[in-house]
């Protein structure tokens, strides 16, 4: 039975992806602060703050000690805040970087070592189209996800020869708690910019992640029909 760790599996995209993998016969560990997730005999919730390096290492060690092999890690846990960059409090920036970037880094380090020992594994880091769009009003969020994309590209090169594939996958707005604070007009405008006026459903996002997983290219891969050219 293949085995995955998904961070932020208690709701939203992580929950949907966990449900899909479980339906396809995977064993899934959901790492999140709230130890909840899909009701399924092959799902196990692990209560952990991914921003805490020692806590992450302990949680991953406990799986290793059980002899568990991890085929796939999806770093999905994320936080966002809508703020003009000049008005974003330092504590908010630190909090977003802690979850989005440090959390991804800690998980990649701890699970990546397991995968190096296994000489195989796949790591998918969830990003966002807000990075190539340089989306105004989301400076801390965009910066944290840009950092995730940079980490992904370095890790992909460092770990490839050990049989570990690392990639980043990004989406436009999906109807989850993360986009709850965004107005309908902003969502419509953003979806227009990326050529997906109908928006992106959780099912479409899950399908895209699995397509990228099969292809094993570092990316970043964006579920978008169009993206603006970089500055």
């Amino acid at each position: 039975m293949p085995c995955a760790i998904i961070t932020g599996a208690s709701r939203g995209l992580g929950f949907a992806l966990a449900s899909r993998l479980l339906a396809e016969g995977w064993k899934v560990y959901g790492f999140s602060r709230q130890a909840t997730g899909p009701e399924h005999p092959a799902f196990e919730a692990v209560s952990v703050d991914v921003g805490d390096a020692d806590a992450v290492q302990r949680a991953v060690d406990s799986l290793s000690q059980r002899g568990e092999k991890i085929d796939l890690l999806v770093n999905n846990a994320g936080a966002a805040s809508l703020n003009a960059c000049l008005l974003t409090p330092s504590a908010v920036v630190a909090s977003i970087m802690r979850v989005n970037f440090l959390g991804t880094f800690h998980m990649l380090q701890a699970v990546g070592k397991m995968m190096v020992r296994q000489r195989r594994g796949d790591i998918i880091n969830i990003s966002t189209v807000a990075v190539p769009l340089s989306l105004p009003g989301e400076a801390a969020y965009v910066a944290s996800k840009a950092a995730v994309e940079g980490l992904t590209q370095v890790a992909a090169q460092e770990l490839a020869s050990a049989g570990v594939h690392v990639q980043a996958v990004g989406f436009g707005p999906i109807a989850t708690d993360l986009t709850r604070a965004v107005s309908a007009e902003q969502l419509r405008s953003l979806n227009q910019k990326i050529g997906r006026p109908q928006g992106t459903t959780l099912a479409e996002a899950v399908e895209f992640i699995l397509e990228c997983y099969a292809q094993r290219r570092p990316g970043p891969h964006y579920l978008a029909a169009q993206l603006p050219k970089p500055f």
Binding site: V116, R117, S161, A162
Partner: peptide, 12 residues
């Protein structure tokens, strides 16, 4: 990556 592999294996 060989050194990383050695360290990861030794930790185990």
């Amino acid at each position: 990556i060989g050194l990383v592999t050695l360290i990861a294996d030794l930790e185990q």
